[in-house]
Design a protein around this nucleic acid. Sequence first.
DNA 1: GAATTCGGAGGACAGTTGTTCACTGACATC
DNA 2: GATGTCAGTGAACAACTGTCCTCCGAATTC
Lengths: 216, 216
Amino acid sequence: MSHSVGGVRQAQKQKTRQALLDAALGLLEEQSLSSLGLREVTRVVGIAPTAFYRHFRDLGELGVALVEEALGSLHAMVRAILVEQAGAEERIDRTVAVVERHVREHPAHVRFVARERHGGVRAVRQAIAGELARFTEEVAEVLKSQPVSAGWRDEDMRMLAELYVDRLVTTAAELIDAAEDGAEGAAEEVVSRSRRQLRLISIGRRHWKEEGGEVV
Amino acid sequence: MSHSVGGVRQAQKQKTRQALLDAALGLLEEQSLSSLGLREVTRVVGIAPTAFYRHFRDLGELGVALVEEALGSLHAMVRAILVEQAGAEERIDRTVAVVERHVREHPAHVRFVARERHGGVRAVRQAIAGELARFTEEVAEVLKSQPVSAGWRDEDMRMLAELYVDRLVTTAAELIDAAEDGAEGAAEEVVSRSRRQLRLISIGRRHWKEEGGEVV
DNA sequence: GAATTCGGAGGACAGTTGTTCACTGACATC
DNA sequence: GATGTCAGTGAACAACTGTCCTCCGAATTC
């Protein structure tokens, strides 16, 4: 597979494409996508403004690419944890720990998603919503296969999954805020609170059938 | 109180100030604050660009004013409902109904808060965070006074309040999205799901002391 | 009724923006 | 080794931005 297609050509293109994504992500730490300038990005990369069009039609398209980069890898991670055979308590701890680590390693990606989830660019909003919906569906399936979920309606399964996913996304956003506020124990407090919240949801889940399921 | 101070002068100023806020809110339906232009706003109002400075130092200051306008009235509303003596089921229904109505009556305000909560302007982010924190604290106090909360630590009280408040904010944001997507039964589905989620949290709350409280 | 305050107008400034077009030159294909 | 593809260039375009300054005139104050 040495003479596939292209070669040096495509590799170089991919490289500056990635440089554009990285530069944009950096600039987006202090502004939102709808105020980001095309020239601003190319200036950081060190290429002519017009070269941008070789890679993206506009900044919205770049934004969608960033969404995939930010959310694509997350699926496998959380899925791997949830599928483990372990007590509820341990699963919660490990999930929160993964979120914490993810925020520490990719803060710019997390901030980007939090910011543009309800941001000013429709295409990006929809991309995030779609990715998060897929994610929620995956979580719902895993939860469904657990013994505790016997007798649950698919509809209720999804509302529970959304509850979990939303909590994780919110926790990630709070960790970002805590980090930039510089308050000392802020991050630890967020983590502790998030764990207790997940625990409360887990308790509600176990007692759902007794008192919640029938009333609809 | 006829000759208070100013008179026609101050009234007129207040009027164009409000016009600026309204115009900005309108423009912000399709973009975010950090990309909003000062001239853009004054053009809609019909005044000279420089007149803007008579009311706000910059758009960030206008944004903070919008936050107060959007979130200020909300406190009393939800507080009034929570304080009612009624079954958990009924309180949930009425709370969700209030949120639903609020979104229908002030969609632009809701969208603004959702968008700028993690948006690109620090001062506005902080204003929203502060307002939401005050709100959460109020909810926590009301919840604390209910019989079910006997023996709860203040810390846990706050994490529960945050769980509730976050759920309401998320529901509001989802209702906005549902409305603009134009899908037929989307809004009803969001409301139904939100009710069940609040119910599950409420169930978890009732069983918290038995299994959650001791493990810390 | 004269003096003052102050919301707003209007011109001008230097910078910036997205997009167009014809172009170059290194790589890829045959 | 000639031919074509195509990532990146650079000049030029009209449109726009935030801010400075001077001025006007009506509401306020004394």
